[in-house]
Design a protein around this nucleic acid. Structure first.
Length: 332
DNA sequence: CGATTGTA
DNA sequence: TACAATCGG
């Protein structure tokens, strides 16, 4: 959804093991949206408990977080606060797209067009306050920290990465954190594996990658402000960008110092360069609240007891490991 | 997505 | 054991 910089930013594949012992600030909504989009039944429906409450996001958050902890990676989830005024138009447009996709999905379902139903229903990703609240509750019971950002999660995550030596990188699929000044962005932070493409006999590799801001800027021959200008030219969550200008020509414009010719309001830059963030953040990992976690997942949400039992062992081991690392950090 | 089960 | 198929909630 954010700034599309993939065509001009070089990606370096990394071993997930390289993140061992490091904390990463994770854009929580970014992760949860992906779970909601991807964790589906074959008919396109989300996972639900018997009362119809969605559980796809909880399943994804639970199992993925355990995998990160087992690798010695310490995820700190960052939640969005109040969006900047400039983003409200974008959010309203997204809502309109969702409303229209919902109608198309219902129609496809009624007419029995299975593939269209899957396609359109994936575009109808609505997060209720309840779903956000229960994802935080799950993290709390697991002993994994989360932080409520004053405004944009990516801004707060980037700020923490800049300020706290424990936080090695921001984890997100979007490139916005680079504009917010995150020293390192990591994408595809998940278990590496082959995944079969739907229908076809083709496999796509999911490989974690890291982007070091300083290296990316050096390769482009610009500074961070220049990167923000590129974003504003091609479009961000705060503005539409200039029609017909993609990343490549935007880079040329910025390098030729012709950004001012495009009449983009200067104050939009400040949303990235002086974002609304909090300096008073702290986080720590705790041992899981096992009984409450069983109760939440198995009794309330009908997760299989056996599955959760198996996962619980891995969670405890993982949390013990990262908790040791947390105490080790006190020495630095 | 990640976990589990099925198959050779 | 290795990988494809399909559950899970």
């Amino acid at each position: 959804m954010g700034v599309d910089l993939k065509d001009i930013i070089a990606k370096n594949e990394i071993e997930l093991a390289k993140l061992n012992g490091k904390a990463i600030s994770v854009d929580a909504l970014n992760a949860l949206y992906q779970f909601l989009a991807i964790i589906r039944q074959r008919d396109g429906e989300l996972l639900k408990d018997s009362t119809g409450r969605t559980t796809s996001h909880l399943s994804g958050l639970f199992y993925r977080t355990i995998n990160l902890l087992e690798l010695g990676i310490r995820p700190v989830y960052i939640y969005d606060g109040r969006p900047p005024q400039e983003k409200i138009d974008t959010l309203r447009q997204r809502q309109e797209i969702k409303d229209s996709a919902k109608k198309k999905a219902i129609r496809a379902k009624v007419e029995g067009r299975e593939k269209d139903y899957v396609k359109f229903s994936q575009q109808v990703l609505h997060f209720s306050d309840e779903m956000l609240k229960e994802s935080k509750e799950l993290l709390r019971l697991m002993g994994v920290p989360f932080i409520d950002a004053p405004s944009e999660a990516e801004a707060q995550a980037s700020h923490m990465c800049s300020m706290d030596p424990r936080v090695y990188a921001v984890a997100s699929q979007d490139y916005d954190s680079l504009l917010f000044g995150a020293p390192v962005l990591v994408r595809n932070v998940t278990i590496t594996g082959r995944r079969k493409m739907p229908g076809k006999n083709v496999y796509r590799e999911v490989v974690p990658e890291s982007i070091v801001l300083a290296e990316a800027l050096a390769a482009l021959g610009i500074g961070r402000e220049g990167l923000v200008e590129i974003g504003l030219l091609i479009g961000t969550d705060y503005n539409e960008g200039i029609k017909g200008i993609g990343p490549k020509s935007a880079l040329e414009i910025v390098k030729a110092d012709r950004f001012d010719e495009y009449g983009i309001e200067e104050r939009l830059k400040d949303l990235f360069l002086k974002p609304d963030v909090s300096d008073n953040f702290s986080f720590s990992f705790k041992l899981p609240d096992e009984d409450a976690l069983y109760s939440f997942l198995c009794d309330e949400r009908e997760f299989s007891r056996l599955r959760v039992e198996r996962a619980m062992d891995r969670l405890k081991k993982g949390i013990e490991g990262v908790t040791r690392q947390e105490t080790l950090d006190q020495w630095f």
